[in-house]
Amino acid sequence: CHSECLGNCSQPDDPTKCVACRNFYLDGRCVETCPPPYYHFQDWRCVNFSFCQDLHHKCKNSRRQGCHQYVIHNNKCIPECPSGYTMNSSNLLCTPCLGPCPKVCHLLEGEKTIDSVTSAQELRGCTVINGSLIINIRGGNNLAAELEANLGLIEEISGYLKIRRSYALVSLSFFRKLRLIRGETLEIGNYSFYALDNQNLRQLWDWSKHNLTITQGKLFFHYNPKLCLSEIHKMEEVSGTKGRQERNDIALKTNGDQASCENELLKFSYIRTSFDKILLRWEPYWPPDFRDLLGFMLFYKEAPYQNVTEFDGQDACGSNSWTVVDIDPPLRSNDPKSQNHPGWLMRGLKPWTQYAIFVKTLVTFSDERRTYGAKSDIIYVQTDATNPSVPLDPISVSNSSSQIILKWKPPSDPNGNITHYLVFWERQAEDSELFELDYCLKGLKLPSRTWSPPFESEDSQKHNQSEYEDSAGECCSCPKTDSQILKELEESSFRKTFEDYLHNVVFVPRKT
């Protein structure tokens, strides 16, 4: 048989008469490798580009789960590009990614509803959504962080984005990388972005840091009482949809009607710091009717980097990364020049730590249904340095008659930039024990000054392991946590139920 035959053949030295091919099969003959313009397919066939392209389009058009959109890589027609490569849609070739590779997620039936953290986790790592997304989240724990972890990498949506009755959302900033909504599939009414009845939605994105392009379709905003109209108009300008909307697409009466839409800028007039305090004062603000001013709200939190936005980490279910302080308005003076500047002394802060701070007014709604208010920009203030805590785990070892090696770990709280350490030492008198000992005694162990690591005695271990207080009263049991108490109650309830079950099964009433 021919060298490319495997198993047997019907005619000697003829690659077209093989029972099976050793390498690849091409047009009725066995070959060692697939010549151009053919590609290896499933490690035994040679196919042309049209064959591989037909497989790709067949799966793409069917949208069946589990099928493969075949691509070409290293002269092979394979189910998908290997790690580190992405497909070129024009020629199906796998090309190296520039940075992290995109991950295209194809949605069944063309859309997916995100109504819980669990459903959001199914899209973790996706960068391109081939379909439409509907966000409908009523509640949950730590929602802002969970949504950002699972949806934060999405850069492109081919269909539309719909935010509907998501009472738990305060902001859409968890879509931190969303840059493009194509609108290839539109919501009824030709809408590519749809926001309806979101009672706590206050911000779409921080438009000073976020760009969003909507290729096709219109915007729809109705019944978002805490979303200011200025935020919607800003989205029109940034996304390129200005002029597409009709009169009733953006409701003037049901958007922002319960919001404090600040239209003035508060400026800080005085800032002073110490290692654990920050004193702030800002310019006074009074609405047209000074009785509408209820006070100020001061927001602050630790910020290692200057990239904080107002609604980071917030949701309507209680999660809030900001510390909020309510401040009463100052006494009002008739003389504008003698107006008191409101302020606040922030206490209990960490030394040498940068804080993000902003302040906003708290006002009631005027009778004319106009909203007044003022808010400052987010500023960054760093507390002063102070003395560091003591170095940890000092170790001293003498390696000769004239040297001592000293080692330690950095302090747990540096409280500033540590530039150097101060080492103090003092000579001590020799131990009298060394002169009084009889060095001729056998088995004498000389006193040693070398360091030995501390260890816990058996008594201390027994005390720590004991669940009861000892007789001397030195140790006591740790208080039980809520989960331990709940577990004990469940076990007790189970024992009672099981005992009742045994009584009912074992003891049967005697027939009379």
Rank of each mutant, 00 (worst) to 15 (best):
N307T: 07
I379W: 06
D328M: 08
D326H: 01
D257E: 04
T371G: 04
W322K: 00
A195I: 13
R347D: 14
P342A: 07
L196C: 06
D249A: 08
P288Y: 01
R138V: 11
N263H: 05
G159W: 01
K337P: 11
E264Q: 09
P287F: 04
S116Q: 02
R281A: 07
N320Y: 09
T353L: 06
M297R: 01
K103N: 09
S376L: 00
K226F: 05
Q121Y: 01
E237H: 12
W352T: 13
K360D: 03
K409L: 12
F311S: 08
A144F: 15
N141M: 15
N320T: 14
G318R: 09
R347I: 07
G295F: 14
E187H: 09
R347A: 10
D328K: 02
S338M: 12
W205Q: 02
I188L: 10
E155F: 09
M346G: 04
N307Y: 03
S401V: 10
E262R: 07
R291N: 10
L331F: 05
H233Q: 09
L252C: 14
E246N: 06
A144I: 02
R281M: 09
L345S: 12
N255T: 11
Q314L: 13
P388V: 15
G243K: 15
Q199V: 12
R247N: 04
N255H: 05
T386F: 14
S173A: 09
P394H: 03
E302M: 15
S319T: 08
H210R: 14
L108K: 07
F358V: 05
I137N: 12
D326M: 07
W282H: 00
I357A: 10
E368I: 13
T371Q: 11
S173M: 09
L331P: 04
S398C: 07
N211W: 14
S389L: 12
G343C: 09
D315K: 15
V325A: 15
K350V: 06
S396L: 15
G140F: 06
F221I: 15
S321D: 15
L212E: 00
R124H: 15
T254L: 12
Q245E: 13
T215Y: 05
I135M: 05
A316M: 04
L108C: 03
D312N: 05
E246H: 13
G131K: 00
V381P: 05
E187T: 07
M235K: 00
E283I: 05
K112Q: 03
E237C: 14
K162G: 15
K407L: 03
E368F: 14
M297C: 11
K112L: 11
G139E: 09
S402N: 15
S398T: 14
R179S: 09
S319M: 15
F193N: 01
N255V: 03
K301I: 11
G110P: 05
S208F: 12
D197S: 02
K407H: 03
V238T: 06
H222L: 15
I278P: 00
T371W: 13
T254H: 15
R247V: 11
I378V: 03
W286N: 11
Y285E: 01
Y372V: 12
S192D: 01
A149H: 07
R332K: 08
G240T: 03
Y194A: 14
L227P: 00
N150H: 13
L252P: 10
S208I: 04
T213E: 12
H341P: 11
P287E: 06
L294P: 10
Q203L: 05
N141S: 09
G240N: 05
R179K: 12
N334S: 06
F358A: 15
T273Q: 13
L212V: 13
P342Q: 05
S119L: 12
P388H: 13
D326R: 03
Y223Q: 11
G139C: 04
K209P: 04
L294Q: 05
D328P: 13
H222Y: 03
I214C: 06
L133W: 00
R176D: 06
P388A: 06
L266I: 04
L362E: 03
A120D: 01
N255A: 06
V390S: 05
Y300V: 06
A316P: 13
Q403Y: 15
N387Y: 03
T213Q: 10
R247K: 09
L293F: 09
E122T: 06
V128L: 11
L108A: 13
G256T: 01
C317I: 12
H341S: 12
S166T: 10
W344R: 07
Y380G: 01
I114D: 00
I405H: 04
L186F: 09
W344E: 05
S321G: 09
C261W: 02
K103F: 05
C228R: 03
F358W: 04
E155V: 14
Y160R: 06
S260N: 02
S192R: 01
S132F: 00
R179D: 04
T309A: 13
E122R: 15
L178F: 03
D257W: 11
I134L: 13
R124Y: 01
E146A: 13
N190T: 07
C261V: 03
D115F: 05
I157H: 01
V324W: 13
Q258R: 12
S274T: 12
P351W: 03
T127D: 04
G159H: 02
D377T: 12
Y191I: 14
N263M: 04
L172D: 00
E236A: 11
H106Q: 11
N190Q: 13
N136A: 04
E146F: 02
L266C: 02
L345V: 11
T383I: 01
P391S: 03
V128T: 13
R244S: 06
L169F: 14
P336Q: 14
K301G: 05
L298R: 00
S333I: 05
R179G: 10
W322Y: 09
G318V: 05
N340Y: 08
Q258F: 04
I271S: 03
R332L: 04
T127Y: 09
K337L: 11
T273G: 03
K242N: 10
Y160D: 01
S173F: 06
Q121H: 13
A145E: 13
N130W: 03
S119N: 12
D367P: 06
G313C: 04
A259G: 07
L279T: 01
L265P: 15
T113M: 06
P394K: 11
L201T: 02
T309W: 10
S319A: 06
K337D: 15
V170S: 09
E236I: 03
F175T: 01
F296Y: 02
Q382S: 15
S321K: 15
K267Q: 11
L227F: 01
Y380F: 12
R244K: 13
F193W: 05
V359L: 09
N211V: 11
R244L: 13
N263A: 11
K103P: 06
V104C: 03
L279V: 13
G240E: 05
D377M: 09
A259N: 02
N340P: 07
N141K: 13
Y160M: 14
K277C: 14
